[in-house]
Design a protein around this nucleic acid. Structure first.
Length: 416
DNA sequence: TGTCCACTGGAACGTACGGCTT
DNA sequence: AAGCCGTACGTTCCAGTGGACA
């Protein structure tokens, strides 16, 4: 019975403490609001580009780019939702499919998502990509539709797999008799066009739209708009909103970031039991978001990446300002031995180091030490206390954190 | 001036897995 | 059951390299 009393208390407190939020959902990034401030022009433009489908003709392919959190996805979803609704009203044969290429990473699965939108069943794996493509094509043609496929974060697809799928999609209309397909590509990366072949580029950019970043005052408008729905009256201080906007604007005008700051600040205020979201909560939120982000990444790292990162940490104990690949590999091997794990090859570990560099956990730089070879200088990209805090909670690595490997002594002696 | 270190990073290939088609 | 297929993760091999040092 005692257990339930404790929980009752927690639940009660949680129920009572709803005085901050009215509707938390509104602050999530995937929420599409009724109004999108400072994007009226883009909405009008995209609406104009897409509208021919309502009259039964194919709309132009469109290429949309702008940095993260500039409202690209929101505008596209907003416009196409309305378009789908309108086409239902008019009985126009229009279908829209949204695919995020960062989440759906392979050509196979992208095609299978497109098929899904047409109710064509495709097995999870097992078919040749060409086969899936054929099924999509013939399925689309029999359904006699104007199909708009939105490929969000398309730069991820191109960088990983090249532009062949995009090429096939853009020239698919030639083979379609009763249906037509249009493509809307959304990219976060402004330089992404360089990766496209000329044929794909010209075909995809029949229309183009650029979403520039929001400035602080625009971000503030966006936040206020959402805050009206998200929070109860009189909860949010003007200073807190301005600070969220300013911090996000300083980064690169990312509305997502601004909304995150506001939401977390609200949650912190709620947990603290106070009534107003102040600037200090926003500052606290900024720290919290960063902390959570890194902790999550560290926690989910594959074993050998963890061991590699851990080796860099251990090497840092010797107070060398930066380590080189060979030293790290030596320590890595010793740690593997202690944990009775078979070590990977140095080539592979070198690759893992590069991956850790990309996600910002390590900083690396290729240097030539002349007579002493060419290698990488490697430093931690995050604070030591961070690694310590996370790894000490790891049941396999925790007890090694204060242990000094034998080879470390030799390495540091060699350097001094 | 040439040598040679300690790697880097590309490429091809191997293995395991899940899951379809035939 | 055998044959494919895509994906993830590794290994093996090796040409290439910037610059300190003899």
């Amino acid at each position: 019975m005692g257990k339930f009393d404790i929980l009752d208390e927690v639940f009660e407190r949680s129920l009572k403490s709803t005085h901050i939020f009215r509707n938390r959902e509104v602050l999530r990034h995937d929420y599409i609001p009724e109004r999108l401030p400072h994007r009226e022009e883009q909405i009008r433009h995209l609406g104009g580009v897409a509208s021919p489908v309502l009259r039964g003709s194919r709309c132009s392919n469109i290429f949309i780019y702008g940095k993260t959190g500039t409202g690209k996805t929101a505008v596209v979803k907003y416009v196409l939702n309305r378009l789908a609704y309108k086409s239902c009203e008019l009985g126009a044969p229009v279908k829209v499919c949204y695919v995020n290429c960062r989440l759906v990473r392979t050509e196979y699965r992208i095609l299978s998502s497109l098929c899904d939108a047409l109710n064509i069943k495709i097995p999870f794996t097992g078919l040749a990509v060409g086969e899936v493509f054929e099924r999509f094509k013939s399925g689309l043609d029999t359904q006699k539709l104007l199909f708009i496929s939105v490929l969000d974060e398309i730069d991820e697809l191109i960088k990983m797999r090249g532009d062949s799928l995009l090429y096939e999609l853009t020239r698919m209309n030639e083979a379609l008799q009763y249906s037509k397909i249009s493509i809307a590509g959304i990219s976060n990366d402004l330089r992404f066009k360089e990766f496209l072949g000329p044929r794909v580029l010209s075909s995809l950019s029949e229309e183009e739209m650029v979403f520039r970043s929001y400035n602080a005052s625009e971000l503030k408008d966006i936040l206020l708009e959402r805050a009206m729905i998200a929070f109860n009256d009189e909860v949010l201080s003007d200073g807190a909103v301005s600070l969220c906007a300013a911090l996000a604007a300083a980064e690169h005008g990312d509305a997502r970031r601004a909304l995150d700051l506001l939401r977390v600040a609200g949650e912190l205020t709620e947990r603290e039991g106070t009534k107003n979201i102040e600037e200090k909560h926003v500052r606290e939120a900024e720290k919290r978001i960063e902390y959570d982000r890194i902790t999550e990444v560290l926690w989910n790292l594959p074993l050998h990446s963890k061991l590699t990162l851990f080796s860099v940490y251990i090497l840092g104990k010797a107070k060398l300002n930066s380590a080189i690949t060979g030293d790290i590999y030596e320590i890595y091997c010793e740690i593997c031995e202690q944990l009775e794990i078979k070590p990977l090859t140095q080539r592979r570990v070198s690759g893992l180091i590069n991956e850790l560099d990309v996600i910002g956990l390590l900083n690396t730089r290729v240097v030539s030490l002349g007579r002493y070879g060419r290698t990488k200088k490697i430093r931690l990209g995050i604070t030591r206390s961070f690694i310590r805090k996370v790894f000490i909670a790891d049941d396999r690595l925790g007890h090694l954190i204060s242990h000094t490997p034998q080879c470390l002594v030799r390495i540091s002696r060699g350097k001094n």
